[in-house]
């Protein structure tokens, strides 16, 4: 797994860390971890496709806006996703093809309804082997 949940960072909420050799892997891992907070991703089928494009001032804000888009799709369109095919250009432009399906309470093992991505400890940093992102979600 490219991510791990952090037990003692956010008392009322959920924190996780993603490590990857490249930017695309960081964004994909962060999206997967966010999804795992909301649902057991194994129960989601990749039945429909959505394209998300995000432009931001820097890589931190690009990740913030990308994760926020996934939360918006959950609330506005009742969609959860299994797969994230991410490409990032120049750390300021992102295109992601998301594959998933409509929320089905009878079949999906649902978990927490994520409220928001916070700025606490948030960001993408250089690590020993590639990059590391820290994300704290408000639950």
């Amino acid at each position: 797994m490219p991510y791990r949940f952090l037990s003692n960072v956010a008392i009322a909420d959920i924190a996780y860390e993603v490590r990857s050799r490249d930017v695309g892997g960081i964004f994909e891992g962060a999206a997967i971890a966010l999804t795992e907070v909301m649902v057991d991703r194994r129960t989601i089928r990749p039945r429909l496709k959505r394209d998300v494009r995000v432009t931001a001032e820097d890589i931190d804000r690009l990740l913030y806006d990308f994760l926020t888009e996934i939360i918006i799709l959950k609330d506005a369109d009742s969609l959860l996703f299994k797969e994230f095919d991410v490409s990032v250009e120049g750390e300021k432009n992102l295109h992601c093809t998301l594959k998933g399906e409509l929320i089905d309470r009878s079949r999906h093992r649902l978990r927490n309804d994520v409220k928001a991505v916070t700025m606490h400890m948030f960001g993408v940093k250089k690590a020993k082997k590639g990059l590391k992102a820290t994300v704290v979600l408000d639950i």
Partner: peptide, 13 residues
């Protein structure tokens, strides 16, 4: 609900 959460996210940015 998501309404307030998004307003918080929007203005934090």
């Amino acid at each position: 609900r998501g309404f307030g959460h998004q307003i918080g996210s929007d203005y934090l940015r």
